[in-house]
Design a protein around this nucleic acid. Structure first.
Lengths: 413, 413
DNA sequence: AAATTAAATTCAGCGATCGAATTAAAAATA
DNA sequence: TATTTTTAATTCGATCGCTGAATTTAATTT
C-alpha cells in the first residue's frame, strides 16, 4: 500500500554519470587516423561503422581545417576499382612538449600533432627537494633546450605535459606532496601558467608511464591493463576501457603503500608493511649495508650500494641473495593483489631497476600466479619494459596531445 | 625525416571505447523520475539541462507508451503561476523478481517498475553443493511463492535477477565455480531460460549487494564507493562513476583472496595468506575450537561455535579475544588496501557477522586510517550496514530492473 | 477583471547522421 | 580500343534529436 501523501522515495543512482560523454564523430575519425598512422576513408567507415557520406563530409571538414590531409606520392596498392586515398594527420598543425621531472635528471620531448618525436632534451640537476621557482627555472631551461633542438619557438607549442613523482592532483594541477618539491600543496599549474603562459597538464609519473604504454607501447592494443613502476618508490597506473583511471577522487593509485605485512618493514611514509618498504631502492639499500658487512661510516651512494649488492648476490652470497629474493616475493604479492582486484589481462612492469633480474625472474611470475585464483581464466600476462626517462616524457606529451586534440576538434564547429 | 615508403605507425589507443555509450535522453529522463520518485517536467529540465521543448516531447512519448504518468490527486504546493504537474513511473508496467541463493536459505523479492517491493518469499534448503537441476527446482518454488504472495502470474514478470556466491560470469550467464553448485562451469542462464523462458541476469552476490546500495541504500548519493561483505567468504563490489565495476574481464573482484600475509593462514582456495583466511566464518571457527578448549569430537555447528566464541570473548577470555582482534587488524589491512588502490569516499561493510563488534570497532577503523596515506584528502568514510538476506535479493531486482528499463525504452522508437 | 507569474506546449530550425543514387578512377575483358 | 566490372568517394534528400523563441495554460495577486 502506497501512501499518496508521502511521495515515493524512488530508486536508482541519484547522481548523473560524469565522464561518460561519447566523443564526437569528428574526433573519433581523427583519432582513428592518428592511431593507424594512415587510414583511407573506407578504413574509417569500417572501423567506426559510419556511413560513407559522413566519412566524406567529416574528413573534408578536417582536411579543410588543416588537421588531416590526403597522402599523395604513395605507391597505391594494386587492385581493381578506384584506388583508395589514405589520410594522415598533418603533423605540423600543433606541437606539444612533455617533461618528466626526476631527482637527478629531467627530460623533455617535443612531439608533433601526429605523435612523432621531433626533439628531446635532458637536464642534469642537483638532487633534493627544491623551491617551486627553482623547479620552474629548470623547466624553462629544458623547454628552451628542446625548442632549440627542434628548431622551433615557444609560440609553436600548444600545450605542455609534466609528470613528477609524488601525490599529484591532475584535475586541479596542484602537487599536495612530491619528493622534488620543498613545499607541500604547491599550485604548480598556476605558477607555470604565470611564468610561461601556456596550457599545462600535470600528472603523477606512474600515470605518465601508463599513458606512454597506452599511446605508444604495448598497451595500445589492450583496453584494460596495469603498469607497475619500481624506482625510488613503487607506483602504479591503471587503464580501464582505454582510459587512464586515476582513482575515485582522481589523485592516483598508491600501490606502493598497500600493506603486504602487518607490522612489517618501515616505509618512507612512516607506516609499516607497505609494499614499497620491501621493493624500492631505499629498502634494498638499507639492508645492503648489512649484507655487504659495511661499517656505518663506509657510506656509498645508494646506486653504488645496490650495484655492489647485486654483484655480491650474483657471486653467490646468501645474504645478498636473500634480500632480492624477499623483494621478489613481495613483488609477487603486490602483483597478485592487483590481479585479484582488477583482473587485467596484462601487467607491465617498468623501472630503472630492471637489471636486477632477481626481481623479474620467472620465479617471481610463477609465485604471482600461484598466489592468484584463476578459475578458468587466462592467467594475467606480465611484461617487463626497460625504458629510459624519455619514455616517461613521451607519456607526458600524450597527456598534452589528447587535450590539444580535444580542443582543436571542439572548435571546428 | 619521415620515410615516405614506410607509413607512420601512429599513436594512441587502438581499440574503441566499449561501454561508454551515453544513455538516450528518454532514458535519462525516465531514470531521473524514478530516482526522484516523483519529478515535475521543470525538475527534469533543471536536473538534465535540457530544453523545455524536449521535456514536453519526450515525457509525452513515455506517458503515451505507459511508462510514465502524471500524478493527479496530489495537493499541489501553493505559489504563483501555473502549478507544476509531477510525473512518476507507472509501477504496474513491468514486474521483476530478484533472488539471492545461499547455503541454507534462499530469498526472493518481487519489485514493480518503480522499484517498490511488492512481495517477498524465503525458502529453507538443505546445505551443501547441489546439482543445477535441483537448484533450478528450488528457484522455481521460490518464484511460485513470491508470485502467490504478490498475487500475480509468471507472465507479468519481465525478467529475473539472481545472485549467488562464487565466481560468476555476468556477461555469459555462467558460473565457473560456486559453493552452491556441485558442478563447475555451469551454464546457469541457458538452463534457466530453458526451464522458465524468462530473461535472466546473473551475478556474484557481492555485486548484488553493491547494486542494492547503489539503487536503494547509502550509495545512491555517491558516485564512487566500495562494498565489502564478510560472511562465508569475503567479497567486494565497486561502483565507479555510478556504475558497477566488475573488473577488467567482468568476473568480479576478489578482495577475499588478496594476500595480506606471505605464507599466512591457509585459505579455502588452497593458498596461504588470503584476507578471507583471517576473517571469514570458517577462519574464526577453526581457531574457536582451540580457544574454547573443545575436544576434537565435541563438534558444533559453525554458527554455534562462533556464538560461543563471541560470548567467551565478551566475558574477558584472552584467547577468544585475540581471535577477533587479529581478524579486526587484518580487516583494517584489507580496507586500507582498497583505499590505496581506489581512493573511494565511502566503504560500506555489510554481512551477517555484524554483531561481532570486535570486527567493526572504532579500533579497526582507526587502524585502517593509520594504515593509509592521506595527503590532505578527506579520510575515507566507513559505514556498516546490518542488512538481511532480502536486501541482497533486492539488489538482484535492480539488476533485472535496469535491463528491463533499457529494453523498454529502446523499443520506444 | 486585469496583471503577473510560472509551467507546459508548439513549432521552425539546426546539426549530425544515414542511405540511395551518382560520379570517379582504376583493372579486367572482349 | 571500347566496354564492363569493381571499388572509392561524393552528392543530396530524409530523418532524428534536440534547441530556443513564441505562445498557450493555469494558477495567484492586484
Amino acid at each position: 500500500m502506497l501512501d499518496n501523501h508521502s511521495p515515493p522515495k524512488g530508486c536508482g543512482p541519484l547522481l548523473p554519470l560524469g565522464s561518460a560523454q561519447t566523443k564526437s564523430m569528428r574526433q573519433q575519425i581523427f583519432e582513428h587516423v592518428r592511431a593507424a598512422g594512415r587510414a583511407t576513408r573506407t578504413d574509417v567507415i569500417q572501423a567506426l561503422g559510419i556511413s560513407a557520406g559522413s566519412a566524406t563530409a567529416l574528413t573534408a571538414e578536417m582536411i579543410n581545417a588543416g588537421l588531416l590531409r590526403e597522402v599523395e606520392s604513395i605507391p597505391r596498392e594494386t587492385g581493381r576499382g578506384r584506388p583508395a586515398v589514405a589520410l594522415e594527420v598533418v603533423p605540423e598543425t600543433h606541437a606539444v612538449i612533455g617533461i618528466k621531472l626526476s631527482e637527478k635528471i629531467h627530460s623533455a620531448v617535443l612531439t608533433d600533432f601526429a605523435g612523432n618525436t621531433r626533439a628531446t632534451a635532458v637536464l642534469e640537476t642537483p638532487a633534493g627537494p627544491k623551491q617551486l621557482d627553482d623547479v620552474l627555472a629548470e623547466v624553462g631551461k629544458l623547454i628552451q633546450d628542446v625548442l632549440n633542438a627542434a628548431d622551433t619557438q615557444l609560440s609553436a607549442v600548444a600545450a605542455v605535459g609534466i609528470g613528477l613523482s609524488g601525490i599529484v592532483d591532475h584535475q586541479a594541477g596542484t602537487v599536495p606532496w612530491s619528493p622534488l618539491l620543498a613545499q607541500r600543496n604547491c599550485d604548480f599549474a598556476t605558477a607555470f601558467r604565470e611564468k610561461f603562459d601556456l596550457p599545462i597538464h600535470l600528472d603523477n609519473d606512474a600515470n605518465m608511464l601508463t599513458l606512454a604504454e597506452l599511446w605508444f607501447g604495448a598497451g595500445r592494443a589492450k583496453s584494460d591493463f596495469a603498469v607497475v613502476t619500481i624506482e625510488q618508490g613503487v607506483g602504479m597506473g591503471l587503464v580501464i576501457d582505454n582510459r587512464l583511471y586515476r582513482g575515485a577522487r582522481g589523485m592516483g593509485l598508491e600501490l606502493g603503500h598497500t600493506k603486504v605485512q602487518l607490522d612489517g618493514a618501515l616505509c618512507r611514509c612512516g607506516r609499516r608493511g607497505c609494499l614499497e618498504a620491501y621493493l624500492a631502492d631505499y629498502a634494498l639499500a638499507r639492508e645492503a649495508a648489512t649484507a655487504l658487512h659495511l661499517q656505518p661510516h663506509e657510506s656509498q651512494s645508494p646506486n653504488a650500494l645496490l650495484a655492489a649488492l647485486f654483484a655480491q648476490a650474483k657471486s653467490g652470497d646468501e645474504a645478498a641473495q636473500t634480500i632480492f629474493r624477499r623483494a621478489g616475493r613481495y613483488l609477487a604479492v603486490g602483483l597478485a593483489n592487483i590481479v585479484q582486484l582488477f583482473d587485467p589481462a596484462l601487467i607491465i612492469i617498468s623501472g630503472e631497476r630492471m637489471q636486477y633480474d632477481y626481481l623479474y625472474a620467472e620465479e617471481v611470475l610463477s609465485e604471482m600466479h600461484r598466489l592468484t585464483l584463476n578459475d578458468g581464466r587466462t592467467p594475467c600476462a606480465v611484461e617487463t619494459h626497460a625504458w629510459g626517462d624519455l619514455v616517461w616524457a613521451r607519456g607526458a606529451t600524450a597527456l598534452a596531445l589528447s587535450a590539444v586534440t580535444d580542443q582543436a576538434i571542439a572548435q571546428l564547429t
